[in-house]
Amino acid sequence: MKQQVLSNAHGGRISSPSVAARTRVPRAAAAATPIKEAPSSPAPAPATPPRARRLVRVSSKEERVVTGAAAKPKRHKEDSEEETRKLRGEVEALRKEVERLQLLNTELECDKSDLTHQLALARCTITRLQEQHDIYIKTDVETKGDFINGLINKVQTTTYTDVEQVLTFVDWLDQQLSTLSDETGVLKHFSWPERKADALREAAFEYRDLKCVVTEISSLNADDGSPTSCEATLRKISSLLDKLEKSMKRLVNLRSSVMPCYKQFGIPTEWMLDSGIASKMRVASVTLAKVYMKRALKEITAYTGGGNEAALVAQSVRFTYRVHQFAGGLDSEAMRAFEELTQRSRLTAV
Rank of each mutant, 00 (worst) to 15 (best):
A32Q: 11
T33V: 04
T33D: 08
P34L: 09
I35T: 08
E37G: 03
S41K: 09
A43V: 13
P46C: 03
A47D: 04
T48E: 05
P49N: 01
P49G: 01
P50D: 06
R51I: 07
A52W: 02
A52F: 03
R54N: 07
R54T: 13
R54H: 12
V56S: 06
V56F: 11
R57K: 13
S59Y: 07
S59W: 06
S60F: 11
K61T: 03
V65T: 06
V65K: 00
T67A: 15
G68T: 02
G68M: 08
A69N: 15
A71Q: 15
A71C: 06
K72N: 05
P73M: 04
K74D: 09
K74V: 11
R75W: 13
E78Q: 15
D79Q: 14
D79G: 05
S80K: 14
E82R: 09
E83Q: 13
T84S: 15
R85K: 15
R85F: 07
K86G: 04
L87I: 10
R88W: 07
E90V: 08
V91L: 13
A93M: 07
R95H: 11
R95D: 12
E97D: 12
E99P: 01
L101A: 09
L101K: 12
L101G: 05
Q102H: 10
L104P: 00
L104C: 01
L104K: 09
L104H: 04
N105W: 01
E107M: 07
C110E: 12
C110Y: 06
C110M: 07
D114L: 10
L115N: 07
T116E: 12
H117M: 02
Q118C: 02
L119A: 05
L119I: 03
L119C: 02
L121F: 00
L121N: 00
L121V: 04
L121C: 01
R123P: 00
C124T: 11
C124I: 02
T125Y: 08
I126Q: 11
